[in-house]
Amino acid sequence: MRSDTEELTRRFRALEGRHRDLCSEIAHSLSRVISSSGIKIHSISSRPKTLESFLGKVDRKKYSDPFAQCEDLAAARVVCLFMSDLDVIRDAIENTFEVLSRHDKIQDGDASSFGYMSQHYVCRLSGDHSGPRYDHITDLKFEIQVRTILMDAWANISHYLSYKNEDSIPRDVTRDFHALSGLLFVADRQFEALAAAAVRSAANAENDIVHSGVNVSEVNADTVSALLLKLFGDRDVGSVFDISDLVQEVRSFGYTDLRELAHDIEKGVPAALEEEAAFPPHALPGEEDDGRFSRVGMVRTSLVHVNPEYRTLMQDKWTEEGILEEGLAEGP
C-alpha cells in the first residue's frame, strides 16, 4: 500500500540532506572527467528534487514504492555544444559511475513524437567512490540528462509553454510545434557540420602556412593563428577571442594581405624583444608569469613599432584599460 502524503513527506525530509550531498558529488565528478576529455561544454548543473515535484510525480505515475521507483531524487544535467560531444560524455559517464540504465531519446525516439530530446542515464556511484565521504550516499540512485544547447533551449521553451506531452498541444499549433522541433534538430546537425568545417579550415591553414610554406593572402582567424604559430610557436597561445580581436584590429588598419601583415610583424620583432626585456609583462591573476609577451602580444608590440596609426590605436586602448607600459608611453 502506498504511503500517505504525511509519511512520504517525513521520509523525503529525512533523505533530503543525503540527496544534496549526492548532487554535489555528481557535479564535481562530471566536471572533472569531462574537463579531462578535452571537449568544451555549455554547463553542468545538479539539483535535488523538491518535495512538491516529488509528490506530484508520485501521484502522476501512481508509484507503489515511490522511493525505489523515483530515480531522479538527485539529478544532474550536462548541456554540450555539439551532437558529437554526446558520445564523449557517454563514455565519461560510463567510466565514472555505475550505469544502471540508459535511455536515448535522441536516437531511439519517434521522429514524429513530441520532440523532447535528451539522453537519460540512471546511475549509482561506482566503487571508486569509497570512504567516509561517500558512505551515506553510495546506495542512492540518481539521473543524469545530457543534451545539446539547442535541445536544452527547446526543452525550456516547451516547458515554459506548459506543453508537457503530445496531448497537451492545441490542435491549431501542432503543425508549427513539430516543424520547429524538426528545425532545431536540423540546426543541431548543421552546427555539427560547421564545427567540423572550422576544424578542417584551421588544419588546412596550419599545413599551408607552417608546414608547406604556401603564400596565403587571406587574413582571418585561422590564417593569423597559423602565422602566429609559425613566428612565435614557443609562446603562450592565448584564447581564440584574442585572435579574433587581433584580426579585427589589423584589418581595420588595412592589413588585408597576410603576407604584408607578416612582413610588418617580422620587421618590428627586434624592437618588440627589446621592449619585452626592458618592460616584461605581468601575469593576470591565475595565469603563469613567464615574463614574456603572448603570441598576440608580440604581434601588437611589433606592429606598434612599425605602424604609427596602429601605435596610436593601441596606446588609446591600453591607456583605457590601465595597462599601458612605460616603454610604449615613451616611444620606440
Score class of each variant (00 low, 15 high):
198 A>V: 14
12 F>W: 14
51 L>Q: 11
19 H>W: 07
175 R>H: 08
151 M>F: 04
187 A>E: 05
137 I>A: 03
153 A>Y: 03
302 S>T: 00
81 L>D: 06
112 S>F: 14
49 K>M: 13
143 E>A: 04
19 H>K: 04
295 R>I: 00
321 E>K: 12
50 T>D: 12
67 F>L: 15
57 K>N: 07
12 F>P: 12
224 V>Y: 00
306 V>L: 00
165 N>M: 07
303 L>N: 02
311 R>G: 06
202 A>M: 06
301 T>W: 01
68 A>I: 06
133 R>Y: 03
186 V>A: 09
307 N>R: 03
329 A>G: 04
3 S>W: 07
142 F>M: 06
188 D>G: 15
190 Q>A: 15
112 S>T: 14
288 E>R: 10
132 P>L: 03
80 C>Y: 09
78 V>Q: 13
236 D>A: 15
270 P>N: 04
201 S>I: 00
287 E>F: 08
220 N>T: 03
139 D>C: 02
29 S>C: 09
68 A>D: 12
103 H>V: 15
47 R>C: 10
179 A>G: 09
110 D>G: 11
227 L>Q: 03
276 E>G: 09
202 A>Q: 01
214 V>F: 07
139 D>V: 08
297 G>D: 09
105 K>W: 15
127 G>N: 11
155 A>I: 07
226 A>I: 00
